[in-house]
Amino acid sequence: MDLSNIYQRIIMQKASECPNNNQFDSDVHLTNPTCGDNISMAADEKNPNIENLQVSCDGCIICKGATQMMLEAIQDKSADQINELVLNMSKMMTHEHYNEELLGDLVAFKSVVHLPIRIKCAMLPFKAIYQLINGDDINR
């Protein structure tokens, strides 16, 4: 196992920038029951405006890095585009064909596929944003 593929510099850097100040009433709160990663999200108006998105994440580097990079990736995106992003991220994690261009920097998480138990860490923020926008779980 090559650790530097999993813990790429960009992921480690972004993880350190990830917000963690659970000072708001969350609309969505998700946890990884096995490891205690958790994420909270709140938005004034849900769909399609998520401009006032508040996020707090406490967890491992993979989870925090994914959260921060997702936040950067969804800026100026519509709800549909965000759903598309979530779908492609999920496909990358399940060895399906995905749109690399659309994922941009998030492709850094590709190696996580080799650590099945950590996929949940990378997907947690994407599941949360999907729930926030659509009101239900991503059905995959």
Binding site: L3, Y7, C35, D37, C60, I62, L115
Partner: peptide, 28 residues
């Protein structure tokens, strides 16, 4: 260092340890 990251690192050194709440969430 989050326990999950630590366990992945140790795994890369072939050391098997558990990371998480060990089915004892109230205690954790």
């Amino acid at each position: 260092i989050h326990p999950h990251d630590a366990a992945t690192f140790l795994d890369s050194k072939n050391i098997d340890v558990r990371a998480g709440q060990h089915c004892a969430e109230p205690l954790t």
